[in-house]
Design a protein around this nucleic acid. Sequence first.
DNA 1: CTGAAAGCGCTTACAG
DNA 2: CTGAAAGCGCTTACAG
Lengths: 340, 340
Amino acid sequence: MATIKDIARISGYSIGTVSRVLNNKADVSEKARSVIESVIREQNYQPNDNAKRLKQPAPSGIYVIVRGMKNVFLVSILEEILFRMREHKENVSVQFLNETEDEIEAAMQITAAYRPKGIMFLGGSTETFRGSFRDISVPCVLITADASAVGHPDLSSFTTDDRAAAEVAVTKLIEAGHTRIGILGGYPVSYPDDNSTLRLQGALDAMSKASVSFSEDKYYEPCAYSMQAGYEAAGILLDRCPDITGIFAVSDTVAFGAMRQISDRGLSVPDDISVVGFDGIENGMYSVPRLSTIRQDISELAARSVDDLLLRISYGRPAAHSVIPFSYLEGESVSSPRLS
Amino acid sequence: MATIKDIARISGYSIGTVSRVLNNKADVSEKARSVIESVIREQNYQPNDNAKRLKQPAPSGIYVIVRGMKNVFLVSILEEILFRMREHKENVSVQFLNETEDEIEAAMQITAAYRPKGIMFLGGSTETFRGSFRDISVPCVLITADASAVGHPDLSSFTTDDRAAAEVAVTKLIEAGHTRIGILGGYPVSYPDDNSTLRLQGALDAMSKASVSFSEDKYYEPCAYSMQAGYEAAGILLDRCPDITGIFAVSDTVAFGAMRQISDRGLSVPDDISVVGFDGIENGMYSVPRLSTIRQDISELAARSVDDLLLRISYGRPAAHSVIPFSYLEGESVSSPRLS
DNA sequence: CTGAAAGCGCTTACAG
DNA sequence: CTGAAAGCGCTTACAG
């Protein structure tokens, strides 16, 4: 592989001059430029980016850290982010982490290795950011968890109000006449600002406001965010509480599993059991029945995050925290309970 | 940001010694190691990868180039690849391209910038590889398209036999008694080894072997690989040929759109129209009805590709081309046509 | 076991 | 306009 030295030697100029033409600097004679350029071309020379970055520690590139790629919702946001970044001609790399890995650690590694202009976190939990994140000083944005309480000057966040949205979802069930409602999904965690904790909380809000009685021990079955987990958890829940007429699943994926479970018991959605999901992924618009769900505004979450990051990178705009409005997407999976 | 110099200064050892503990070399006293390690921890020091790579120009890292991230099937394979690579402690980065971008160009850029150990292509088309790929000399593997005809010494490939699989899928419809079969999805392209061309071909094989008449102009409706496109294309197809009793969709995603279209017309799957898909993604096991489909062996495709790449990187094993067996996954979306 | 020094491929003041 | 030289953060023979 040819290096800048080879180009200098072959062209008869110094490496300084070669570097100048490489970087389109002024102060190079036309002659030198054309000679050097032709040598570069004929040697098929590619500058070594590592060396460049080492010497020119200007940050470059944007990194997206996605926690859990099974998550269709996150992948949808990622898709929009990539699309928008491409329009801005920004080069972005994606790093996938599984649930057990620490996104802050990954971010530190990226920071050290690549000197990124900015980092986006998809699906992280606020909790992790309270710790060692302090040491990071690159514009960052957390999507899907509110980081305002973290109070870090380099961290923006864009979120859906999980608690309020869950309340709306469950209220829809209550308004349809359901009083025996089951809740599916999410794991009980120790800290209070986890997405599923907030959603569970919102569901409880709806019930207590409407004076619908609810026993968390009986009517709540936690599970991972996957169809299979949703399928199994719904089975456990329905075995335990056969009187349930409505189910709120904390994510669409879990809802799909639940709908399949209901169907396997010879029951119908929504005639026997109504189901409401959360997220608003595309699948729900094509399932039979279409899923009634909370639609998080994927485009807006992506657009606002991208704009925020770019403006902070280029104009030093301060970090911001925004809650993006959600909406209730009326599908076909909710109806009034049968009179019994 | 702390550098190796800072660690040396603070710990009281030389940068050479620090480097040695960083790289787990022998010949470092226990004392030095523990002192230095604690300084590294307390300074939260992260070695600069650029500098490391500069000095150690050994290739590092594996890159996966995914063409089209809307593709759930490809994302499933990616997931498995990442999981397996992690088990081997290999660091992998993912680069997403949209359909219009050239994966070879992306690969050349990656090669120059990062000196990768290997590159995996997900969802590329053989055609692109016939061109400038010649210049690449890093172990590569193409997944989902047969590259044996390209004949490049650095390119392996792992595929499903699309044509044979599509033949099986359509044969299942024929065996159930269907004679008016529609085909959905894929775009007619100029070159013959495109996935959808092969699948269409296989479908035609099945029909002609069974002497089922088929008019490509009428009973084939091409469309992109998405639920929405499948939904729309199914509408066009059913408007044009209301006598259809069975549909073969060249991908599950398209099949989901088609099933929803059928349902919206007040028809039932499979009572009125049977549907067979292609890919075998998880969603199909939870839809109502469950989708009967060709199951490409996602784990095996991922596992074989990973093993192949690693063995070629470490042991200079020659490139190979393998066809991974598929199976027919019996769901609930196919039955015999109603007597009419 | 440890330190001093050369050098990886580049960029960038600094002279001329 | 051009060259010589320092230095980016690391690794690795080479001495000791």
